[in-house]
Design a protein around this nucleic acid. Structure first.
Lengths: 383, 383
DNA sequence: CCTGGAATGTTCGAATCTGAATGTTTCGGA
DNA sequence: TCCGAAACATTCAGATTCGAACATTCCAGG
């Protein structure tokens, strides 16, 4: 650059903006400056430099210290933006699991919270309504919570009661991956949810395009999303004129360990009988186990049995890698935070929002290539 | 370049544009200029230079300082965000009407456009699919449109074709007050719409709470929202165990002028026969006419006939003032713009959003007080 | 030749910037 | 803990610059 003599001292005076830029340059170069040095170097009075330092500190571009200034420090309590820290809102978040599906939702929520300048307090819970309520209550008790994001269990009377309770809270509540039914008086509840029915339909249409004409469905009725997956599967099947009643549709709720082998064998038998060549498997942990079982039994995936998983948490780990429907988990968290935040700042005038997001279909090995030409039973009614 | 004598002082005066170019040259050469210097050099008054500086600062080409100008500086608070001004996005908006319902939607869209720093170009159209397409095409032809907000007619083959065309456009498209059906391949289309079914249900429940036990519905099948209103009315009626089949449900599409009197008389007759004491009337222009007709016929509103309108455009003008469901029109516009804007900045990774907003019920005179105690026929099966 | 509008210039009170004077706070060593 | 020096805040004044209102000039078109 031009580190010759002080070009400022040579008669030419600077505009205030240029002076502040010079000041920032010095600051960036040395990490800290003294008022006296800078004043001497720029040929102005110390008072002027102090004023500049104040202006820049107000914009958060540096931290004031006695005698000068340093680069912005997080320890600087007076720093710009810190002021809101005190009264910035805090959103409580209660999710049913901290190791499956929800970590990404939380991650998205944290991103949005940073952007929206709100704090966020997360608690893990279970898929049990009573525990959901306990965790929410714990949040409300311990912290100053201005809004809530919850993914409660909504089934049965306990679920309905929980919903009603959430609806009656004096703070905004947003459901994540849950929909408040129109029937019960929970119309004040906003929600953001993935359109799992659409995701299931996408999977079915994908399998159809790959040449499969009998497409089964394996679900886990214990999961709140399962009903939507089944509905989407049925709708897509109807649209494609595949008889739903004659198709394989199995529930794997609560089947674990040794039972699982039997269960899968039974399903494979059903597929054989109905000439089903493709399965949509809800929860891709289940899909991974199913593919593993197929491989163990010598059934080629995808040649004899194509598989599409749901959730895309672990589907890529299987061998062969499993195609899966991927819900926009990060966005579910993001949007939930945005909803709460907007509600907090806009108040009652803002209408209740209900938001559905479309998932993606991630195509991997387990579903491409279509029914194998030499398959023992899959050819008969393929195109 | 040309540092010869001052070619300006030598009699020749410059056009303003040339003068500003010279100014920018000086600025680039020295990094900063003083108004006084430039004024002297170019042989014009200081005020003129100040005006030039203001103009150039507005375009973000320099930063104003007391006494002159510098090259654009990040420290210049007033310049922040102005830089995007040049390449900021432009959203096209095509609405079916410019005098009913949509002005408020447009107004909300403009608000959001200001906030999001995007421009917006609105065109009025009609409720005809062919004209919708013409107007969209006109927008695309004449302007540099980066995204679209449309409220098309989606009925019939022409509507389906229009939807497909919109879906195939290379720019983001958001439907306003319309829902893309899951069936046809328009799944890339995002939308924001009022939940009119919820609004109708709210009206029915309100009338029920006011004591009405037979609640009719008058709609205009020519309007795209009408089907949702009817659906909401039916759902609420079922939930309240009011037989839908035995209730008054009339379509007033295309009935104008003199015919209207007869039509209303016929509906009033039906209400009398079925002991219906309350009507939900879609489009509150219709509601105003209906209430006027009732008053003319000596039927007390709300005593003998309670009325709730829909849309809340003119409902407050009637005598008595009419209760009405008020869709969040401004928010429909706001959210639509936000959707397009977010899509433009986030691209494909962002999942497709579909957003429903709840309307409000504005209670006025026409629906409060319940069926009149002395009503000729309304008492028999009230509570 | 006139006229209307755009660009430019003049005037003058208001706003801004800077630095000196003065009183107050903070820091670091005794 | 106290004290003195340095750093800081506050106020005021002088100089400069800004900008609104009005006047002037220039130019195209009737």
């Amino acid at each position: 650059m031009s580190p010759e003599q002080t070009p400022e001292a040579s008669g030419k005076s600077l505009f205030s903006l240029q002076r502040r830029e010079r000041l920032m340059e010095e600051l960036r170069a040395h990490g800290a400056i003294t008022v006296r040095d800078v004043a001497a170097r720029l040929g102005v009075s110390e008072l002027t430099i102090r004023r500049d330092v104040n202006i820049l500190a107000d914009e958060g571009l540096l931290s004031r210290v006695h005698g000068g200034a340093t680069l912005p420090s997080p320890l600087d309590r007076t720093a710009a933006g810190t002021r809101q820290h005190a009264n910035r809102h805090c959103i409580g978040m209660v999710v049913p699991s901290l190791d499956y599906y929800w970590p990404q939702v939380i991650s998205g929520a944290r991103e949005a919270a940073d952007e929206q300048q709100v704090r966020i307090a997360v608690r893990g819970s279970t898929y049990d309504a009573a525990d959901n309520r306990r965790q929410v209550q714990a949040l409300l008790d311990t912290q100053n919570i201005d809004g809530l994001i919850v993914a409660p269990n909504m089934t049965g009377p306990a679920g309905q009661e929980l919903l009603r309770w959430l609806n009656s809270l004096p703070i905004p509540v947003v459901l994540a991956e849950r929909r408040s039914p129109a029937e019960i008086p929970a119309h004040r509840l906003e929600w953001v949810a993935t359109d799992h029915a659409f995701g299931a339909g996408m999977a079915v249409r994908h399998l159809w395009q790959e040449g499969h004409r009998k497409i089964g469905c394996m679900t886990d009725s214990a999961s709140p999303t399962s009903s939507h997956v089944v509905r989407g599967w049925e709708q897509a099947m109807s649209a494609l004129k595949i008889p739903v009643n004659a198709s394989v549709s199995e529930d794997s709720a609560g089947i674990l360990g040794a039972d699982r082998g039997e269960h899968f064998d039974r399903i494979l038998q059903l597929c054989h009988e109905t000439q089903t060549t493709a399965m949509l498997v809800h929860s891709d942990t289940q899909a991974v186990a199913f593919v593993q079982h197929c491989v163990d039994r010598g059934i080629d995936v995808p040649g004899s049995m194509a598989v599409v998983g749901y959730d895309d948490e672990v589907a890529y780990l299987a061998e062969p890698a499993i195609s899966a429907v991927r819900p926009p988990k990060r966005y579910v968290g993001r949007v939930a935070v945005q909803l709460v935040s907007a509600r907090l700042s806009e108040g009652r005038n803002r209408p209740v929002h209900r938001i559905e997001l479309n998932p993606d279909l991630i195509v991997r090995e387990s579903s491409v290539g279509g029914p194998r030409a030499a398959a023992d039973y899959a050819m008969e009614d393929s195109l």
